[in-house]
Amino acid sequence: MTTLVHRRLVAAQLDQLVAESPASPTVLSADHRRSLTARFRAVSTGQHRRLDAWSVEQAGRPDASFQWSPASARRTIGNRALGRLTTTATASLAEAVSDEVTDHLLRATSGYARPGSLAHWLASASAPVMGVVRAEAVNWATQLCEVAVGLEASWQVASNDAYYDVAAARTTLRARRDLVVARGDDRVVVRLRSGAPGKSAGAGLRADLTIETLAHPSGVSPVRFIGLWPEAGVCLAVDATMADLRSGARDLVRTAMVRRRDHDTRAA
């Protein structure tokens, strides 16, 4: 039986979610990885596929082609700005965001940014667009900061997302993560979302949890994966039980199958 906990997004409730997470994590063995690989390999693909919680929540519907926008850039810049604020003597989040944008521009002008990257896009953006990017990033970072500062446990901003490449199946799984909260030797992973949680939010969290666990070198899961929806003022959490991990893996394979079927239908 899978788990799903629903709480109001207030500091006390979030602290409780962290403190009362399961006592120990679940560990995925090499057999589990092999089993998952076999299932993905059974769903053949002509091109490399990338799956994440969003594709699970959208039931495998193909994404529109990605392009940078203030909304898609805010998380990258906002998270790094909050990380910068916690590790350097930056005075405010707004300044940290400005410094982060400047870093991207420097990377672009020094030739280190590849075409299609955020730095490359920012370098070609007009001043008003840059202003909106900063405004969106400040909003994102402020929301995350308000959540993080209210936590009693120690936390750090996740420096990157979790990626797991399924061997010989031309499949990359990606789990987004924004905060990693320490709970003894274990970890609780927190992800910030926009909008309000839909009916498939739990499935999305389980997909994130599964990928996060697969991406760990020893297959150790976080004890709990928490999704925050500040616009709606709610948070949802899933525990790292084997049932939740299995459910997450099943949803990912199912999503790959739907994608494959869609591809075949279009090709026919």
């Binding site: 005075a91 405010s92 989040l93 400040v138 909003n139 309000a196 616009e231 709606a232």
Partner: peptide, 15 residues
Amino acid sequence: PSRWMPRTSVRASQS
């Protein structure tokens, strides 16, 4: 002032 944490276009949705 940025120390007052200004944010713009703050959305909310309550069900």
